[in-house]
Every structure is written in structure tokens, then in C-alpha cells.
């Protein structure tokens, strides 16, 4: 792994550890730690949601998620990392919101979320997604854009591109594999 990658991983690790300790103190009733935790968490949540739904709904969703974190904090296992737990709650709230149809369209400009950066600092690399996609043959790139970015089903995308659903599935699988390999090569 290269040096910036290592530094990023170490920063993420520090952040995780800090949030986890704040959560543990919160579960014990430390309201100052809780205030700090929710404040920090809301910043990350705002960034996470802003990349996924319309700006007008972000604040509502952040509040919903903060409330859910509060109500369901008993389901957090102190022995485990905090971030995956918070992410699972946030993701659930996002899916719930989308399912209720208040925000039926995921805006196309959120395309970078295919390889979603989870913090403001990492958002600088989101532009790389477009560059990575350019490595794919046009047909494969279009298919990825249809399915992963525009949210079409594989069947719909296959019809649009004039291929069978099975070929579309295979093509998609291969394209994703190729992207993953490309990311791996760049990281080394």
C-alpha cells in the first residue's frame, strides 16, 4: 500500500477508536461524550446522505438517523467497532426513506457513490471513479452507468443495450471485476 493510503487508513482507525470510546461512555450515561458523539456523527451523516439523496432531504434524514441511534443504542455491542453499526443504522434510514417514495430518484450527479468516499477528506478521490470507468470498453461502461448509477434493473439495462439479461449480468460482473483489479493496481 502507498503512503497516503496508509495514512488514510490510520486516520480512519483513529476516528473509529475515538467514536467507539465516545459511544461506550455515552452508553454509561456520559451526556458530554454523547453530545460530542452525536455532533461528530451528524457531520459524517450529512456528507453520507448528501451524496445519495436530494439536498432538501438531507437534514431530515440526519435527524431521523440521530434519533434512531439514540433509540436503538442498546443494540450496539461495545466489543465491536462503532462505525459499521452507525453505518448500518444510517443505511437503513436511507433505504427506508427511499422506499417510502419521498425521494424516489437518486440524482445522477451522485454517481461517485459507486465507490463512495465516507468522509469529506476522501471525497477528493471521488473524481477517480470517472477516470476508472473510462478504462472500460464503451459497452461495459454504459451498462455499469445504467445499472449502478441510474438504478435500472439488469433486465431493463439489457433491453436498453440490446443484449440478453444473462449477457448483461456476465458483462456487469466482468466489468466490476476489472474495476476492482484496476483499483488494486493503482493502490499498489
Amino acid at each position: 500500500m502507498n503512503v497516503p493510503g496508509e495514512r488514510r487508513a490510520a486516520q480512519r482507525q483513529d476516528l473509529e477508536e475515538r467514536l467507539r470510546l465516545l459511544m461506550i461512555r455515552s452508553l454509561e450515561g456520559d451526556s458530554r461524550a454523547y453530545h460530542q458523539l452525536l455532533g461528530e456523527l451528524s457531520r459524517y451523516l450529512r456528507g453520507y446522505f448528501a451524496r445519495r439523496i436530494g439536498a432538501s432531504e438531507v437534514e431530515d434524514l440526519v435527524q431521523d438517523t440521530i434519533l434512531a441511534v439514540h433509540l436503538k443504542r442498546g443494540t450496539y455491542d461495545r466489543a465491536l467497532p462503532f462505525t459499521p453499526w452507525a453505518y448500518a443504522v444510517a443505511r437503513y434510514k436511507l433505504i427506508d426513506r427511499l422506499r417510502r417514495g419521498r425521494s424516489p430518484h437518486v440524482p445522477l450527479q451522485d454517481a461517485g457513490d459507486l465507490l463512495a468516499p465516507e468522509s469529506a477528506e476522501e471525497s477528493a478521490v471521488s473524481g477517480d471513479v470517472a477516470r476508472l470507468l473510462e478504462r472500460l470498453p464503451t459497452r461495459q461502461r454504459k451498462l455499469i452507468e445504467d445499472v449502478k448509477l441510474q438504478g435500472l434493473s439488469i433486465e431493463e439495462a439489457a433491453r436498453k443495450r440490446g443484449v440478453t439479461a444473462v449477457s448483461a449480468r456476465v458483462m456487469l460482473h466482468r466489468s466490476l471485476k476489472r474495476l476492482i483489479q484496476a483499483v488494486g493496481v493503482e493502490d499498489r
Binding site: 456520559d30 454523547y34 455532533g39 443504542r73
Partner: peptide
């Protein structure tokens, strides 16, 4: 909201 949640916090 955060203020209120932190104020009402009880050990869980």
C-alpha cells in the same frame, strides 16, 4: 435535538 437527547441521556 442533539442538546435534548444528550440532556435526557440515561445509562443503557
Amino acid at each position: 435535538l442533539i442538546e435534548r437527547l444528550a440532556e435526557d441521556l440515561a445509562p443503557v
